[in-house]
């Protein structure tokens, strides 16, 4: 699954640690999600969507469907 977390984070000038703090996960988890090594659960994806005021589809894209 691809995602735009790194871009969205950079646009707001947030570090991985800032985003991790906002989503209540570890910085390693944010790093793994950004690199596509770990797919977040639906609740975490919703939390990210709420934080960025976007829909889940605007942040996460299914590579198989693309």
């Amino acid at each position: 699954m691809k995602n735009r977390l790194k871009v969205l984070r950079a646009e707001r000038d947030w570090t991985q640690a800032d985003l991790a703090a906002a989503l209540e996960v570890s910085r390693q988890t944010i790093n793994a999600i950004e690199k596509g090594k770990f797919d977040p659960s639906l609740p975490l994806a919703f939390k990210a969507a709420r934080l960025f005021n976007m829909s889940i589809e605007d942040i996460f894209q299914d590579e198989a469907a693309a």
């Binding site: 947030w14 800032d18 991790a20 703090a21 906002a22 989503l23 209540e24 934080l51």
Partner: peptide
């Protein structure tokens, strides 16, 4: 964002 970070401080 600051409020979210504060909540996360609790989580950490």
């Amino acid at each position: 964002m600051e409020e979210k970070v504060k909540e996360s401080g609790d989580w950490t």
